[in-house]
Simulated scan of single mutants.
Amino acid sequence: MTDIETLRQRLSDAEAARHRLLTGSMRERINRGGTDITYTRTSIRDLERYISQLQAEISRATGGAGRRIINLYL
């Protein structure tokens, strides 16, 4: 299991990458569990799913019941 600070850092990195993609960047690279993943504007849905997954993991790790991930992009 990944520690909470690592999860929070990954979430911060992913949200920053999403922001850059939405405001003009053509591609962004983030580290996802030891693997570099490159996202582009065409794969922003994958990045959104990753952000939702991280949010749910953080919620569970901090004592929340977790939340059901609803993917509106499918």
Rank of each mutant, 00 (worst) to 15 (best):
M1E: 08
T2A: 05
D3L: 06
D3W: 15
I4G: 00
I4H: 05
I4M: 04
E5S: 14
T6S: 06
T6H: 00
T6Q: 06
T6P: 04
L7W: 05
R8W: 02
Q9P: 12
Q9S: 15
Q9G: 14
Q9W: 13
R10H: 11
R10Q: 14
L11D: 09
S12Y: 09
S12R: 15
D13H: 12
D13G: 11
D13A: 07
D13Y: 08
A14L: 03
E15S: 09
A16T: 10
A17T: 12
R18L: 12
R18Q: 04
R18K: 04
R18F: 04
H19Q: 08
H19S: 15
R20L: 01
L21P: 10
L21Q: 06
L21I: 05
L21G: 12
L21F: 13
T23H: 08
G24M: 01
G24Q: 06
S25H: 13
S25L: 14
S25W: 11
R27E: 12
R27P: 04
E28Q: 13
E28C: 04
R29Q: 10
R29Y: 04
I30T: 00
I30P: 03
I30S: 12
N31S: 15
N31C: 02
G33A: 01
G33W: 13
G33C: 03
G34D: 03
T35P: 11
T35A: 15
D36S: 09
D36P: 05
D36E: 10
D36Y: 09
I37A: 10
I37G: 02
T38Y: 02
Y39G: 01
Y39H: 14
T40G: 00
R41H: 00
R41N: 13
T42C: 07
S43M: 02
S43A: 04
S43H: 00
I44T: 03
R45M: 02
D46F: 03
D46V: 11
L47E: 01
E48W: 02
E48N: 04
E48C: 10
R49L: 14
R49T: 11
R49V: 14
R49M: 03
Y50K: 01
I51C: 06
I51S: 10
S52Y: 07
Q53M: 01
Q53C: 11
L54Q: 07
L54F: 06
Q55P: 05
A56Y: 00
A56E: 11
I58P: 05
S59W: 08
S59E: 15
R60G: 14
R60F: 06
R60W: 12
A61G: 03
A61Y: 00
T62V: 10
T62H: 01
T62P: 03
T62I: 13
G63N: 05
G64L: 06
G64W: 05
A65F: 07
G66Q: 01
I69T: 06
I69S: 05
I69C: 12
I70Y: 02
I70T: 04
N71K: 05
N71F: 08
L72H: 10
L74T: 13
L74F: 03
L74Y: 03
